[in-house]
Write a protein that binds this DNA or RNA. Structure first.
Lengths: 244, 244
DNA sequence: CCAAGTTATTCTCATACTGAGTTTGTCTCA
DNA sequence: TGAGACAAACTCAGTATGAGAATAACTTGG
């Protein structure tokens, strides 16, 4: 091994600086539809274009902290937000300014207040995931992978409870699945399934104050149970096209 | 927003350099047991301790390329290696030298020749995952998460075929599941299940030349099919302790 | 060569889970 | 007050699963 190889292997200062950012795919459900938080960029490059909220990590800040901070800067941060790491992207040239490695996070929250413009964005808004504007950088790809991850995790984790309030009805939970998966579900089977999975939900003993807006009896209220994995899982209807 | 906030948000050069590395959790099956590739560190910090193969990314190298390169440097790189991203780790202080963000990758390969010492390691060897030495940095955690990911992916993807040769018998495939999951499986049920999942394996029409080493008939040979997802999935026996 | 032991492959059968549809009774709105 | 909406529970046929057993093709040690 010669000297240059040694340096290439071990000394990061031999390289041009690499910048590390976090980008957050923040999802919520508004009016029965899945929405993602986007900010309009105020600076070059891609000024004026919509992007995922995110920014450079700070020197003494862990990755999840950075993600939570970036999200808080755009939304005023509600209490109950679930955050988890998604993936990292580091293709040279993905940011024209310099070598940037971006760690993406997925965040889920119950229906949130309208976001406020943060320190580094001209504007911030929830967008329905079926009708998105063109995104800056490679954020369209990150968002796509984040949605796919969210759809998967709904199957085998109690993630859906992160989209609803402290207590909720089975129908509210079902509408989360329908919004994220984008398909209608059989109400009776969903009900049976949710109640049969140990630890998914537990009854509060209460019911809603009134029936549904358009009629129907009062629904029983539940809260999230202590399961970390759903067993058996709630599987999406098979998607032929994704199997091959 | 004042000037310092602006810089904090947008100019990475305002920060101390962040180094980005890739670490690879490379798995293979040798003698019916799951093994992971480890290298003995030749340099400080943690000199002499075992670690996951990895190193700093190069300026014009994409992340997966860097992972493949690091793996090749330790093993002489066989052809058929499946590589996928695992997660990223960036807690301040995880490397005493400087701020390091590490992107981990998971690699799977059929039984490989003994590794060779690479350019940046004093030694390299396959270790059984049930009997591991103490690892450098936070590599024990990375390895644990890598194993968990591999066990999960075996359930719903044809990943197991990446651990066997071009053609294989159902029993060979079963022994992959048994090695990775660490539990014995019912041979008859496994056989029925594998053949019933569309696109998992396809028959070659051939059989093995001889029976098994200790007896039994010749087994039919299969190759990997075109499925990207297994449907229905091959589920592990329920793990009560992991559900709550 | 033969008996004993191994293994691949196929069956059986009882139980569990799933999708689709139905039933019952409560509630809202016009 | 009647029509429609909806929560919750039930039915039933089809499918998947776990456990065990049967069959037959091979091995190896005598």
């Amino acid at each position: 091994m010669d000297e240059s190889e040694f340096l290439a292997g071990y000394d990061p200062r031999a390289y041009p600086a690499v910048a590390v950012t976090v980008d957050v795919v923040a999802l919520t459900i508004r009016g029965g539809a899945l929405h993602v938080l986007l900010v309009r960029r105020g600076e070059q490059p891609h000024a004026g274009r919509w992007a995922l909220p995110g920014g450079f990590i700070r020197p003494d800040e862990d990755l999840p902290e950075a993600a939570a901070r970036e999200l808080a800067e755009e939304t005023g941060m509600p209490g109950r937000v679930h955050i988890e790491q998604l993936a990292s992207y580091g293709t040279p040239g993905r940011d024209p300014r310099m070598r940037v490695v971006s760690v993406s996070y997925l965040a889920f929250a119950p229906d949130l207040p309208a976001p406020r413009a943060g320190t580094d964005a001209a504007d911030a808004a929830w967008h329905r995931v079926e009708r998105l504007p063109e995104l800056a950088f490679d954020h369209a790809r990150i968002l796509t992978e984040g949605l796919e991850r969210a759809r998967d995790k709904l199957e085998y984790t109690p993630l859906a409870t992160a989209f609803v309030g402290e207590t909720f009805t089975i129908s509210e939970l079902r509408s989360v699945y329908e919004a994220v998966w984008g398909v209608p579900l059989h109400a009776g089977n969903f009900h049976r399934k949710v109640l049969s999975v140990p630890g998914f939900v537990e009854s509060t003993g209460e019911t809603t104050e009134t029936g549904g807006a358009r009629g129907g009896p009062r629904a029983k209220l539940y809260r999230a149970g202590d399961a970390r994995l759903l067993h058996p899982a709630l599987l999406r209807p098979a998607r032929e096209e994704e199997i091959r």
